[in-house]
Amino acid sequence: MRKIVFALIILGLVASSCGSKKKATKKRHEHKTKTTRVDSRPATPVETKRETKSTGFHPISVNSTEEYIEVFGPIAQDEMREFGIPASITIAQGILESGSGRGELTLKTNNHFGIKCHTGWTGGMEYHDDDEKGECFRKYDHPMTSYRDHSLFLTSRSRYASLFELDKDDYHGWAKGLRKAGYATDPRYPQKLIALIDRYELYKYDEEVLGSSGRRKQFASEAGIHIVRRGDTLYSISKRYNTTVDDLKRVNRLRNNNIAVGQELKVR
C-alpha cells in the first residue's frame, strides 16, 4: 500500500512540474510575441526623412538689377566664349524676361529667359499665363541650367542662324534680330534690350571677353558717333565737336536734354 501511495505522490509531483514548465513557456512566448509586435512599427526617423527630402530645386535670390548683373554677368560671359552670343544680350534678356530674377515665373521655375516648353521638351514644366492662358514653360533645377539652355535654344534653331553672322559685340543687331526671328512678340523688345545694355553698360562684358575695350569707341568715332560717357552733357559734346545743342537734338531726334551713359549720338 505504501508503495502505491508513494508512486502516486511521485506522479503528482511530475505532473505539477510539467504544468509549471508549460505555463512558463507560454508566458515567455507571449512576452516575446508582444515585444516583436512593438518592434515592427515604423520608426519615427523614417517619416521625418520623407518629409524633409530635397527636391533638387535651387533658385538664387537677388535684391536688385545691379546684384543680378553681378551674379549672372560672369555666367553670360562663359556662354559667350562657348557659343558666341553677346554677353550683353544674354544679361539684358535675363533682366527683362525674369524681372531681374524676381519675377513670379522665374522664382517657381528658374527660367530666366521665358523659354516655353515647345515640341520635344522632356524636362520640368510649369503652366503660367502669358500671351495665352496656361502656357507651358520650361522648369530647371538651377538658374545656370537656364542660361545654358538659352544658348542651346538659340544655336540649335535655324531661324536665329543669321544672328551668328553679326559681330559678337553688335548688340544692336542682335536685339533687332531676336525680335525679327520671333523670340518675342513685343514690338519694342529691341529698344528695351538696348536701353538696358546702355543704362547698365553691359557692353563692357562683351569687351572683356573680346579684349576690345577700345574697338567700339574707334568704330563709333569713324562713323561720326559719340558714345556718351559719365559727366557728358549736350553742351560739352557740342563744344567738343564744334556744333550746337540744337543741332545735336535735331539730328538725334531728342525731345529734351536728357542723355544716358553709353548712348550713341550722331555728331556729324
Rank of each mutant, 00 (worst) to 15 (best):
M1H: 08
M1D: 10
M1F: 05
V5E: 09
V5A: 13
I9N: 02
I10V: 15
G12C: 13
S20I: 12
K21P: 00
K22R: 09
K23L: 12
K23D: 04
K23W: 06
H29T: 12
T36Y: 07
T36L: 15
V38E: 12
R41Y: 09
P42T: 07
T48V: 14
T48Q: 12
R50E: 15
E51W: 05
T52Y: 09
S54M: 02
G56T: 02
F57S: 10
P59K: 11
S64T: 07
E66L: 13
E67I: 02
I69M: 06
I69G: 09
I69W: 08
V71T: 12
P74G: 11
I75E: 13
A76G: 04
D78N: 13
E79F: 00
M80N: 08
M80K: 08
R81N: 06
A87Y: 03
I89E: 10
A92K: 03
A92N: 04
Q93Y: 03
Q93G: 07
S100E: 11
G101I: 06
G101C: 07
G103Y: 08
L105T: 01
N111E: 05
H118W: 06
T119S: 13
W121N: 13
W121M: 10
Y127I: 01
Y127Q: 11
D131F: 00
D131G: 06
D131S: 10
K133T: 08
E135M: 07
K139C: 08
K139R: 14
T145I: 05
Y147C: 08
R148A: 10
H150C: 01
S151F: 03
L154M: 14
L154Y: 10
L154K: 10
S156W: 00
R157G: 07
S158Y: 01
A161M: 03
E165M: 10
D170S: 12
D170F: 04
H172S: 02
W174E: 12
K176W: 04
R179S: 15
A181R: 11
Y183L: 11
T185P: 00
D186K: 06
R188W: 01
Q191L: 04
K192H: 07
A195P: 00
L196A: 13
L196T: 03
L202N: 05
L202W: 02
Y203I: 02
E207S: 15
E208S: 14
E208C: 00
E208K: 14
V209C: 09
V209E: 09
L210W: 07
L210Y: 09
L210N: 15
S213I: 00
S213G: 14
R215H: 09
A220P: 01
S221D: 11
A223K: 15
G224D: 05
G224W: 01
R229Q: 14
R230Q: 14
R230W: 01
S236Q: 06
S236H: 05
I237M: 04
K239D: 06
N242R: 11
V245R: 03
N252C: 09
N256M: 05
N256A: 08
N258P: 00
L265A: 09
K266E: 02
V267M: 04
R268T: 03
R268N: 11
